[in-house]
Design a protein around this nucleic acid. Sequence first.
DNA 1: CAATCAACCTGGGTGC
DNA 2: TGCACCCAGGTTGATT
Length: 293
Amino acid sequence: MPELPEVQTIVADLKPRLEGRKIAGITVLWRPTIAQPQVEELTERLIGQRIERVWRRGKYVVMDLSSDDRLVLHLRMTGRLLFRDRSAPEDRFTRVVIHLDGEQQLRFADARKFGRIRLLDDEQFRRLSASLGPEPLSGDFTLDWLTEVLARRGQRIKSVLLDQRYLVGLGNIYVDEALFEAGINPTRPANTLNDDEVERLFHAIRKALSSGIADRGTSFDSYLDAFGEPGQHQYRLQVYRRKGAACPRCGTPIERTVVGGRGTHFCPRCQPVTPSRASETVLPSRKAQQPQG
DNA sequence: CAATCAACCTGGGTGC
DNA sequence: TGCACCCAGGTTGATT
C-alpha cells in the first residue's frame, strides 16, 4: 500500500523527468478515477500546461502547473504511477494516461480503482493541505507537538497515528513498524503514553519512514515504483505480516489482532498493554485470567 | 467524542 | 480444475 516512503520514492524519480515538460493530452479509460472536475473540463484545463514542480504532501503526489492549478493524485491501495515510453507494452489496470511532449507518458494504473486524480485551483489545494497534519520528516513535526496532540486524544494510539488530520504519511505497514520500534502497544490510549514513550515514538516514526525510503518502499502486494520496479523494504520489516515469526528483539512469536479494522502486528512482550519499566520484565501470572461476569 | 462498520473495488489466496 | 468465499487497507461518511 503506498504510504509516505512509496509516494516519496515515486516523486523523487518523477521529479527530474517531469519538471519542465508539457502535458500534450490525456486519455481516461476509467472515468471515476477523475474525481474533480469533469473529464471534459480536466482535459481543457490540462492540455498545454507545463509541469513546474513535482512534490508530495502526505500520500498525495502533487504537480504544480504553469496555470497555477495543481494536479493531485492519490494512489490509495493499489495505484501505480508509471513513467513509460509511448511504445512500451501496455500496463495492466491502466485507468488514465497523461501524454507528455516527446515520447513519454505517465500511466495511472490501479487494480482496485480506488485511486483518484484531481485538478485543484489554489484555494481548493490550500483547503486540502490545511486539512492534513504536519510532515513527519520536516521541522514542523516536533516532540512538543506530538506530545500535545497525543495528550488530547483518548483514542488508541494506532488509530491516532493513522489519522492523516493529525500526522500525514503513516499507513498500516509503517505504523505497526513504528509502534514496535518504540515498544508501544497499538491499543494504548494515546493520552496514557508517558514522556519517555512519546519521545521513543517520535524517533521511531521518523526511523520507520526513513528506513522505508532508503529501501525504496515496501512491495508486498501491488506497489511498484515509477519504473515498474519493486522496493526492498518488505525484507526488512520487523513485525508487519510476520505473525508467528520470532520477534527480532526477544524471540517471542509476533501476534496479529485487529485494531480499528486494520490487521495489526506486534510483539506481546516488547509491546505490553501495560507499560513496564525497561529494567524489569513483568511475566504474566499463571492464573492471571479471571472469569468475567 | 470514540468506536464500529459499510462503502468503494478486484486480484489473489484459501478450502473443498 | 472449478468455485465459493474471504481478505487485503486508504479514506470518507454513516451509525451506534
